[in-house]
């Protein structure tokens, strides 16, 4: 086979299939923003260092700036535009809105996507570095403020809205009842 530098792929985003030809260099983030008009996912650093581009891929939070679009074919992508249930905001979105969990708003879609996954990861019993004893015998950690802070640390907020972000994630986690989440992590 002769080398090709682009491919025609089908991306499934927020439940909708999109067929497009992509330069192999195109990241999932750029495909979303520049090709599909889904500009909710933000480009803060383009290096995986800020989390503003966080989306869910097969239910797991991912920095879309380091995910090649061509590599995302066949996976289910959920962006901030697909987090809500129609006109009903996801509890994380509602909590960010009510508690002012943001200022400029640029990191917000990534924070919200990340928080949706954090709640699922925690529900699946995943430990974090803030969890003292990681052995399974120790049981699942409580989602304390300290746990939320650690788990949300992949999303930088330069406005410094962390205090409200932690409160918003805690509120949304409290509101979570099994089976009502729009997006479930596969964790």
């Amino acid at each position: 086979m002769s080398p090709a530098t682009s491919s025609t792929i089908t991306l499934t985003v927020n439940g909708e299939k999109h067929t497009l030809a992509v330069d192999h260099r195109t990241t999932l983030l750029d495909a979303l923003r520049e090709r599909l008009g889904l500009t909710g996912s933000k480009k803060g650093c383009d290096q995986g260092q800020c989390g503003a581009c966080t989306v869910l891929v097969d239910g797991r939070r991912t920095v879309s700036c380091l995910q090649l679009a061509v590599g995302a074919e066949g996976r289910e992508v959920t962006t901030i535009e697909g987090v809500a249930d129609g006109d009903r905001l996801h509890p994380v979105q509602q909590a960010f809105l009510d508690l002012d969990g943001y200022q400029c708003g640029y990191c917000t879609p990534g924070q919200i996507c990340s928080a949706v996954a954090v709640i699922e990861e925690h529900a699946a019993g995943w430990p974090s570095v803030a969890t003292g004893d990681v052995r399974p015998e120790a049981g699942a950690p409580e989602l304390t403020a300290e746990e939320i802070r650690e788990r949300m640390s992949g999303n930088l907020c330069r406005c410094g809205a962390y205090v409200s972000i932690v409160q918003a994630v805690a509120r949304a986690a409290d509101a979570r009842t099994p089976g009502t989440e729009a997006e479930g992590a596969t964790a």
Binding site: T62, V63, Q67, P127, S128, V129, R135, E137
Partner: peptide, 23 residues
Amino acid sequence: VRRRYPALAQALLAGASGQLRNM
């Protein structure tokens, strides 16, 4: 991993961010 080699789980969890560890 957590039962037999807890330091390995802790080392992994200390690396990067939740998003990057998923990838």
